Amino acid sequence: MFVLIASSLFQPVITFADSINNSETVNPRITYNANGGTNNGTVTNDQIALNSSYNVRSVGTDSGDLNFTPPNPSSQIFEGWNTEPNGGGDSYSAGQVVTSWPYSQDTILYAQWAKASTVSYNLNGATSQSAPVSQFGKSGTSVTVPNIYFSQLSF
Rank of each mutant, 00 (worst) to 15 (best):
W81C: 08
W81F: 13
N51M: 11
V56N: 03
A49H: 11
F68G: 01
W81L: 10
Y54K: 15
P73M: 02
N33D: 15
Y32D: 01
Q47C: 06
D62I: 05
N40S: 09
I48P: 06
I77W: 02
P70Y: 00
P71K: 09
F78Q: 01
P73E: 00
E79H: 03
G37Q: 05
T69L: 07
Y54V: 12
T38M: 06
N82G: 10
F78G: 01
S75F: 02
F68C: 00
S53W: 04
R57E: 01
S63L: 15
L50K: 11
Q47M: 11
N55E: 13
E79Y: 02
V56L: 04
V59Q: 06
F68V: 00
N82H: 14
G60W: 11
N67Q: 14
V43W: 01
L66F: 11
D62Q: 15
A34Y: 00
T42L: 10
Q76R: 14
L50M: 10
A49R: 15
L50R: 09
N82A: 06
I48G: 05
T69H: 11
S58V: 07
W81P: 12
P71V: 05
T38R: 12
I48T: 13
Y54N: 11
N82T: 12
T61C: 03
S58H: 10
N33M: 06
G60R: 13
L66H: 08
V43M: 02
Y54C: 07
N33S: 13
S74K: 11
T69C: 06
T38L: 04
T44M: 00
L66T: 10
G80S: 06
G36Y: 08
F78L: 00
N33K: 11
G64S: 06
E79Q: 12
L66P: 10
N33F: 05
I77H: 02
N82C: 14
N35F: 05
N82K: 08
V56T: 07
G64F: 04
